[in-house]
């Protein structure tokens, strides 16, 4: 698909947010050994699910500190 300059105002914030969400979840997963539910492999895969993956990790995977 041809992506013209027309789409740039959309793509820049979109990419920053999507990558940011996944990166934040991934960093948190890899820095912690134990999780509330699930295991590391599950959460690493889940963090790549669009939008909902990182949200699910921070709610159901991240342990309360």
């Amino acid at each position: 698909m041809k992506i013209g300059i027309d789409y740039l105002p959309f793509l820049i914030p979109l990419i920053i947010l999507q990558v940011g969400l996944t990166a934040a979840a991934l960093i948190h997963i890899l820095r912690h050994k134990t999780y509330k539910h699930g295991n590391r492999l599950l959460w690493v895969i889940a963090s790549f699910i669009n939008i909902i993956g990182p949200v699910l990790y921070f709610v159901f995977g991240k342990e309360d500190d």
Binding site: L14, L17, Q18, L21, I51, V55, F58
Partner: peptide, 14 residues
Amino acid sequence: RTYKTPLLVAVFIL
């Protein structure tokens, strides 16, 4: 601190 606020804001901007 439980990242709920930043997550909610990021997702809704998205």
